[in-house]
Computed example of a mutant assay.
Amino acid sequence: MAKSDFYDILGISKSADEREIKKAYKRLAMKFHPDRNPGDKKAEAKFKEIKESYEILMDPQKRSAYDQYGHAAFEQGGMGTTGSASFGNSADFGDIFGDVFGDIFGGGRRQRAARGADLRYNMELSLEEAVRGVTKEIRIPTLSECHVCRGSGAKSGTKAQTCTTCHGTGQVQMRQGFFSIQQTCPTCHSRGSVIKEPCNSCHGHGRVERTKTLSVKIPSGVDAGDRIRLNGEGEVGEQGAPKGDLYVQVSVKKHPIFKREENNLYCEVPINFAMAALGGEIEVPTLDGRVKLKVPSETQTGKLFRIRDKGVKSVRNGMLGDLMCRVVVETPVSLNDKQKILLRELQESFGGPTGEKNSPRSKRFFDGVKKFFDDLTS
């Protein structure tokens, strides 16, 4: 009698993906499993067909051979041979579905001890330290390997023993009706072993609390919010499990002169209105010293001047930012009598507050104000 097509058995198309195959298998296996159909030979035979179809179509190589040669690929002398399994009424339903639910129930594999926790250290830097780079020593409390038992957790001269509850698998099976569900072993908590005689120093954990000192090299160009990872400098895991990492979180103190935006530095430079009007040369600060800035005549307040390559060198691509100087024209204070007289004479020479020639912006503003009120009254 000719064998049925594997795709037809599962009720799926030839283009079905892995997820669709698993879904069809689960649905049909639950329906025809011998545990749900005790003594029904037809259901048992159907279940065998379903499982064989599933095993072939879930294996990429076998599926490719089946698609090319059909059942002949697995007959004697063909591409390969498939073994037929026998399932009685005592068949373990959990084992049948192990490959479907393995990612949920753990597949019966013993889990390794958990990796140690990551640690975080907040480091505040000055702007100069962030720009130029710095090496700093830090002290952090952490869980370190116990020197007495060398991280094993067992008393000297002894060692961990295979868990008698799960026999080293780290999991046990709980039966619920016709389901057999795998759960974490309550005795060893998935480690697969137990410590009968714990270390007196760490009490079986394999780690103890300590404060350690580290030398941390901060690269030049880091900025607020940057994070530096130190591999393996976090907490050690229990019973010899790998260490976590240490993350150094950078913050930068407010600077009295400079403000950083990406790789550029900004600063405000006050000038008196005489220099703003006549022009001149002033010294401005940089992180490397002072440089001269030429102020052209008739410079208005808020004017931004760029000084190339006096910013921050990027920690990521090495590009050098600029220094941006924003001039602010400062109104003079504490005037003496002579200065007041000179300023009044200067004001008169302008022809009043709206002098067209010397104060074009004032002239435009007041002309606009006059037109606004004229329009209101017309």
Rank of each mutant, 00 (worst) to 15 (best):
A45F: 05
K363S: 10
G206E: 05
R109K: 14
E137R: 07
E238V: 09
K42C: 01
P270H: 05
E128C: 09
H189K: 12
V131M: 09
T169E: 08
F6S: 14
G133L: 03
S359R: 14
G88P: 00
D223K: 08
G311S: 00
E209S: 13
P141H: 08
V100Q: 08
S193D: 13
K310M: 03
M275N: 04
D17V: 05
Y66Q: 03
D35K: 13
V333H: 10
G78L: 09
S362P: 04
K23N: 11
S126I: 07
V295I: 07
T377A: 15
A45W: 07
A73D: 10
G98I: 14
C185F: 04
K51E: 11
G204Q: 08
T165K: 11
R109M: 09
K254R: 07
H203M: 11
G355V: 00
V295P: 05
M123N: 10
E129D: 13
D40T: 11
R36E: 04
D17I: 04
T158G: 02
D8C: 01
S13I: 02
R27Q: 13
C146G: 06
P34L: 14
E261G: 11
H71G: 06
L293I: 05
I228Q: 07
R150E: 15
F178Y: 15
F372A: 15
G280M: 00
V327R: 01
L28P: 05
N89A: 14
G116H: 06
R344H: 11
K14F: 04
E283N: 11
G80I: 12
F372V: 14
T299N: 08
S4G: 13
N358D: 01
A24R: 06
I140R: 00
P332D: 01
R229F: 13
L57W: 00
G244V: 05
N263F: 13
L287R: 08
S180T: 14
G192C: 12
E298D: 02
I218M: 10
E49Y: 08
S334E: 15
K370E: 07
G80Y: 05
V208G: 06
C166G: 05
Q68D: 15
S220W: 09
M30S: 03
G240I: 00
